[in-house]
Design a protein around this nucleic acid. Structure first.
Lengths: 103, 103
DNA sequence: ACTTTGTTTCGTTATTCTACGAAATACTAA
DNA sequence: TTAGTATTTCGTAGAATAACGAAACAAAGT
């Protein structure tokens, strides 16, 4: 295995990942929805009613956000209650803040 | 023409566009580079030397950032001097800040 | 055991993204 | 006019994304 030069910092890579997760209006909508309803139960179906997309498509977007760590899902059959992942949300917040304020 | 319901707010759409522009480590690198060198001349070639990608690929990334409005290029043949687009940078900063702080 | 319910996964298709090298561009210098 | 320089555009190819409906799942109720 060849030693590989690191071109991008950890921060740069994380920023890119969080940004990628946020790079679609449906996903921003979902994050807005969850962030505005902290404490409440947010089911996939609740959001599906407000969006002009198939439920399966919504599910894929939820999967993307989960993959990036911005949200998490608590299984409560047959429902799944979604909410913001606070730890990673804070991390993303810090990253974007430092990035835009050049700290 | 049929009247279409608006599902996403202006902010949600703008956020998604800025996030999309930032959704690649090379582009975060470029933004970091330009933001750290405000006032100085930043040419495509300067960045090309620090990145493990073809110059044409870098050029495409620069085009993406220009399209999103985060950077601008001032032609100074045969060079092109790049810099942050301050107006849109501020807008993106505000958007991300309000988003993550739920203001 | 069967049905219902909310949600996800699968299979598919169309589109967009990322990357490269070669060729084109646009201006300067000789 | 020709050569040189920095950068972009083009043509192409492979990978990733987004969308849908149908089918699968997993637990609860009948």
């Amino acid at each position: 295995m060849v030693t590989e030069k690191k071109f991008y910092t950890e921060s740069q890579q994380k920023m890119a990942l969080y940004a990628k997760a946020m790079a679609h209006p449906v996903r921003i909508f979902i994050l807005d929805f969850l962030a505005d309803n902290i404490g409440k139960c947010c089911y996939s179906g609740d959001m599906a009613e407000e969006l002009p997309i198939a439920r399966s498509t919504l599910s894929e977007h939820l999967k993307e956000l989960k993959k990036a760590g911005l949200i998490q899902g608590e299984i409560n059959p047959p429902y799944i209650k979604y909410c913001i992942n606070k730890v990673n949300w804070e991390e993303a917040k810090e990253l974007f803040q430092c990035f835009y304020e050049r700290k």
